[in-house]
């Protein structure tokens, strides 16, 4: 069954091109613009920053795999066929989530590899940074699974998660600079799990462990809350 789910996900060629190719293309375009504007720009640092922004945003878009799979298996006529099979329905839920997470994890590895190889970016404490990003992937996919269980429609969940991804990165000032004041400073650090990942990554890379662990703790707490809610609410789906 696990192999089948991999097959189901892997056959979505267009989705893979978008998820794996689009962030790298956008990074490339962004870097071309930056290098044209300022030929002396720190390519590695700039590419790494843009790479992180797209990783954080696209991990939410990657959650589409999770909730489209869950929608098909639990909120369409497939539900009866799968529930009639000699397999506990919870396994369909778990495999959907696991493969969605794997795709997003693969995506972040592709982006990081691209900025390292293409722009000589250096990632300090890269192992921990990747681990924090993977924690973010786990949070986002669990959050997406909670959304589909609540909303029961993938297109509604997609709208919600898109708003979260774009809104979360924008109000954190990741796309364009926000006016400097206490509110924007607060938003850029604490407004969403996207910024918690961000301050944690920045902290680990700069050896600022107070920020690193603060962001990670907030992310872990959010993951725990979302997971508890998801486990409770998904019981009625898999019953």
């Amino acid at each position: 069954m696990l192999r089948f789910y991999f097959l189901r996900v892997i056959k979505d060629y267009l989705g893979h091109i978008i998820l794996l190719g689009l962030p790298t293309l956008l990074i490339f375009i962004n870097m071309q613009i930056q290098m044209n504007v300022d030929p002396d720009v720190d390519k590695g640092g700039a590419a790494l920053y843009v790479g992180f922004v797209f990783i954080l945003m696209f991990q939410a878009f990657g959650a589409a795999y999770t909730f489209e799979g869950i929608e098909q298996d639990f909120f369409t006529p497939f539900k009866d066929r799968l529930r009639a099979a000699p397999v506990r329905p919870v396994w369909f839920l778990i495999t959907n989530m696991v493969y969605g997470m794997l795709i997003s994890f693969l995506q972040l590895l592709v982006v990081l590899t691209f900025v390292v190889l293409m722009y000589d970016a250096t990632i300090s404490n890269w192992g921990v940074v990747v681990a924090v990003l993977f924690m973010g992937v786990m949070f986002t996919h669990t959050f997406a699974s909670l959304l589909i269980v609540l909303l029961k429609k993938a297109n509604k969940a997609q709208t919600f998660i898109t708003l979260y991804a774009i809104g979360g990165t924008m109000i954190a000032g990741m796309f364009f600079p926000l006016p400097e004041n206490a509110l924007t400073e607060f938003l850029s650090r604490y407004s969403s799990p996207i910024t918690w990942q961000w301050i944690s990554i920045e902290g680990f890379m700069a050896n600022d462990y107070s920020d690193a662990f603060l962001g990670l703790s907030l992310l872990l707490a959010a993951f725990a809350i979302v997971m508890v809610l998801f486990v409770r609410l998904s019981k009625r789906v898999v019953a």
Binding site: K11, P77, D80, L82, V87
Partner: peptide, 22 residues
């Protein structure tokens, strides 16, 4: 089932394999 519940983007062979494995 009353509705057709096969995976449209997998081949018929892959659908049969999946339900057999299930």
């Amino acid at each position: 089932t009353q509705d057709v519940t096969v995976y449209e983007h997998l081949s018929a062979y892959e659908n049969l394999l999946f339900f057999g494995k299930l």
